[in-house]
């Protein structure tokens, strides 16, 4: 190997670098294929179930539906309020994400950077909304919202979704604040950075990957929240999960459930691809550890 490298007058480390890159590219390709199967096949199944012809059911021994039709889609659009639910869901989610970010930011900072008595307890307390069993949420938490006059109100739903998303936001952002190296902050302070400059040039860029994760989680929580939404929202407001559960809960109908699930997933997945494209440069810069 070494002999050949010398003959070609290519330095060893360049060769190694090339080989390394090729290896990584192959690895990436391998992962892409694995992922396409891992994620693609279940989704393909959902697509096929959503296209089953009611007159010609998909049953054993058919590997694929014997005929396709849009009847299941028509059924969902004709007999449920799916369009209205989509609008409601996508109006609540961005507000809930924003609100949970704004409300949690001071907490994230304190928990991540300051030593205060009782911190461990607070870190547990903020997890309570997601630890509480669904039944407790449905039967008791909903009463709290009703007592605050937040039942049947759009603002109440935004607050409810904020509450359920905040544990993720707080825990992830706290970790981000924790992992900012103290020497960077000290250096900035020595150079006379004001609080504003510190926030703009150090904290925000350094917590960005965590912020992206936290926002995605809060968004998903809001889009998927069911227990609380159903009780304090309906009949005035319906969201996508309230429709999904009518096909998925006790009365489980695979075909219609697939339709609603696909309607629910598609905008999210498109949004994910757009957001990732949009954030790509910053994201990579952050992940390379450059400030």
């Amino acid at each position: 190997m070494r002999v050949r490298a010398e003959q070609q007058k290519t330095p060893l480390h360049v060769l190694q670098e090339r080989r390394r890159r090729r290896f990584y590219l192959m690895l990436t390709l391998f992962f892409v294929i694995v992922q396409l199967i891992w994620v693609g096949i279940p989704i393909l199944m959902a697509v096929m179930w959503s296209l089953v012809d009611p007159k010609n059911p998909w049953s054993f021994p058919n590997m694929f539906p014997p005929s396709f039709s849009f009847a299941q889609w028509e059924y969902v659009f004709k007999y449920t309020n799916i369009a209205r639910a989509l609008r409601t869901s996508y109006s609540i989610a961005p507000l809930a994400v924003l609100l949970s970010f704004v409300l949690s930011l001071p907490t994230d900072y304190i928990m991540g950077r300051k030593k205060i008595p009782g911190k461990k307890i607070f870190m547990l307390v903020v997890l309570l909304p997601i630890i509480m069993p669904g039944m407790v949420v449905a039967l008791f938490l909903s009463r709290v919202f009703a007592n605050f006059g937040l039942s049947q109100s759009f603002f109440g739903l935004v607050l409810a979704h904020t509450l359920m998303g905040m544990p993720y936001m707080i825990r992830v952002l706290t970790t981000s604040f924790q992992s900012i190296p103290q020497d960077v902050i000290d250096a900035a302070e020595n150079l006379g950075a004001t609080t504003f400059v510190k926030i703009k040039d150090i904290f925000l860029p350094m917590i960005r990957p965590g912020l992206l994760a936290g926002m995605i989680f809060a968004f998903i929580v809001s889009i998927e929240e069911f227990n609380l939404t159903f009780i304090i929202g309906t009949p005035t407001f319906e969201t996508i999960p309230t429709i999904l559960f009518s096909f998925m809960g006790y009365n489980f109908i695979r075909t219609n459930a697939s339709v609603v699930a696909l309607i629910m997933m598609t905008p999210n997945i498109i949004m994910l691809f757009v957001v990732e494209r949009f954030l790509k440069s910053d994201y990579l810069a952050a992940s390379l550890g450059k400030m």
Binding site: P106, L128, M132, F140, M166
Partner: peptide, 15 residues
Amino acid sequence: LLPGVGFILMFIGSS
């Protein structure tokens, strides 16, 4: 901590 932890406690405490 109030807007974060306080907000959560306000709703969760009584439940």
